[in-house]
Design a protein around this nucleic acid. Sequence first.
DNA 1: TCGGTCACTTACCATATGGTAGACAGATCC
DNA 2: GGATCTGTCTACCATATGGTAAGTGACCGA
Lengths: 207, 207
Amino acid sequence: MRPAGRPVADGASTSERILDAALTSFATRGYEASSLDALAQGLEVRKQTILYWFPSKEVLLEAVIDHSAVELSAALEASLATAGSGWARVEAVVRSVFRLAARRPELLGLVREMGRLGTPAATRFVTAVEPLVTRASEFLEAEMDAGHMRRHEPRLLLLAIYSTVIGMLTEVEVLRAFGEEPTARSLVRRRNEILELLRSALVTDAG
Amino acid sequence: MRPAGRPVADGASTSERILDAALTSFATRGYEASSLDALAQGLEVRKQTILYWFPSKEVLLEAVIDHSAVELSAALEASLATAGSGWARVEAVVRSVFRLAARRPELLGLVREMGRLGTPAATRFVTAVEPLVTRASEFLEAEMDAGHMRRHEPRLLLLAIYSTVIGMLTEVEVLRAFGEEPTARSLVRRRNEILELLRSALVTDAG
DNA sequence: TCGGTCACTTACCATATGGTAGACAGATCC
DNA sequence: GGATCTGTCTACCATATGGTAAGTGACCGA
């Protein structure tokens, strides 16, 4: 029995730990399938502690969405801000998405979960990510104008890149279902194939 | 109040209607988030009728998986059996996947749901689809041997194709979240872009 | 030292869930 | 016409769920 009262401040705060565990659970098991009880048990805390920080499960979801959108945006904004232009810069961003997928798969998992969650949640997420999408679109458009890339609708292009990466996540799941745990080597090779696929589809001879 | 006793035999049988509704619900809302009550209500039937045909929710899931695997395999085996070789035949199969995604999105949605469902369910599905995967792998390998396609590990190649299509499904969801209902025109154009992407990545000059 | 706040607890509650037991009505077979 | 089988129903149950109310102890400022 853990005593009541103010806890020892070891590492992450309770609300942060809740957010993190909720993100993982929502992204892997799904929002509706995640129970507050199970969440609390994993955190070695009572369910009411969760409801103290986030007055309802829906509010918790919104907080998870906002938090994730910020983290996602920060990670990608950083790579978007790197120097360079043309394909090199696109490749840098895509590689950072790969890194993000390896380091925080829950983040991309949550994005995938968006389709399942209703319009309100999806809208909230999209709104939070909108600035990032706009920046990326503008960059792509500039590159097309400069003749470095084939002309595409930039939003669709982003979606193509995004869905390719999401697809790679799914691939890993399917491989596991086939009982073949992908090796680090094979994953790296696969990434390079995907990059080559994107490059050949996007870049002009001048790029 | 619908009377008890034997129902009128109008169209699909009850068990088929249950299977179909369950597939849709499992694929869109997820297995755990789908309640038997809600399912029954949609079918204008009591929950116990579902439990009469499928003695537990888990058995229902297994039936849905088996049923879907058969339908999926049938649709793709048919297109695999078409004449032709090289890229033309690959394109025929991919196009049939696109058609399937348009006609029965639940089927591909269930495949995507597999990652969430535990190992038993995923194993069951993979086992049921295994012959199809083997056939497709053999075809791809033969094409590579004949020099029509660049050399890849055929399973990874299938996964690439699969994840590209799954990705396109996700794209539509994201577009909708952005409030942009994709038009039939834009979807067709997108499909052609994806086919071109695959072609350029797979086919050799001799293909 | 003492009241207040903060972080977390126990004690409940209404509802929804998957599942069981058994009644009941129509069809079928003898 | 009665027994039986089939498909659906009503009645019920144990458990799990999201959420409310109220308590408890540690810490803090006056």
